[in-house]
Simulated scan of single mutants.
Amino acid sequence: MYLRFQPSRQHSLLSSNQETMMHLRTLIFTSVILPCILSSAAKDEHLEPRNSVNDLIIPDYEGDQEAKELPTCLLCVCLSGSVYCEEVSPEMTAVPPLPKETAYLYARFNNISRISNRDFADMVTLRRIDLSGNIISVIEDGAFSKLSNLEELTLAENRLTKLPVLPTNLVSFNANFNRLRTQGVKATAFKKLTKLAYLYLGNNELTAVPQLPESLHVVHFHNNKIATITDETFCQGNSSHYIRTNMYEVRLDGNPIQLSSHPESFICLESLPIG
């Protein structure tokens, strides 16, 4: 009887072990492997490429302009519509891209050599530009023509031999200490600037005085090469009743002209020219 029982007991133990292993495998599958499979499937679904253009998520960069502005405002000082780029290091050789709300630009004492039509093309908010102390020798003719709000333009201490077309609403224009010549300044360059009150063209190479608008208060032509003027330069030679009431300061000192030889040329002025 013992001999018959032993194989049966071994068989029973073997069956029990197999059953235990099956339970263990099931447990491992349900608790470890199955969650991993489900997680992987979910991840694959999440990363699946989208074929529809409408499903694409495209970042909205309204700040493209701001991205362009950032280097300028790191290089210069941007403050409440004003940009200060004075004596920038490393050397600034061109007008930098400006924030779209810029009203005042001070880019003095740099190495800017040229002003192109692109530099201020979309900057209608500009009211004042100061580019003193650069090495500007060329300004493209349309560089300032679209700046309808520009009131003050300073180009002193540069290397200009001629002037571009100027915006019509200028109140003050300063081009002292350049190399301006009469052939580079049209006779009517300022005539249509009906708001121009201050005109500074001292220390240049001008041989004649251009036509001057009635709005002028102050005009400086000192240290040029002006050798002669006419009765029409400041006054109206055919009228002894005409008085230029706005103009109270004229500088002609440092020119080869003898003012005493032209007494009728200043009869309309309320004060004699300096020089």
Rank of each mutant, 00 (worst) to 15 (best):
E66Q: 12
R108L: 04
P97F: 15
P49S: 00
R114G: 03
G81N: 09
R50L: 07
M92P: 07
A42W: 10
A94V: 13
T72P: 04
L27V: 05
D119G: 01
V53E: 09
C73K: 11
E101S: 13
D64S: 08
E69G: 06
E87I: 01
V53A: 14
S39K: 08
Y106A: 06
L38C: 08
R50N: 04
S80T: 11
I28P: 00
I33C: 02
A42G: 08
Y84P: 02
D44F: 13
E48F: 01
D55G: 00
V95F: 08
P99W: 02
E87M: 14
S82F: 00
E66L: 00
K100I: 15
V53W: 11
E45T: 02
N51S: 10
E69L: 02
E86P: 01
F109H: 15
V53S: 11
I28L: 14
C73L: 05
R108S: 08
V83I: 10
L70I: 07
I28C: 10
P71R: 03
D60W: 06
I58M: 09
I112S: 04
D64Y: 13
P99N: 06
V53K: 11
A103T: 15
A103C: 12
N111D: 11
I33D: 05
E91D: 07
N51H: 11
C76W: 12
R50E: 06
T30L: 14
Y61D: 13
F109G: 07
G63Y: 02
F109D: 15
I115L: 09
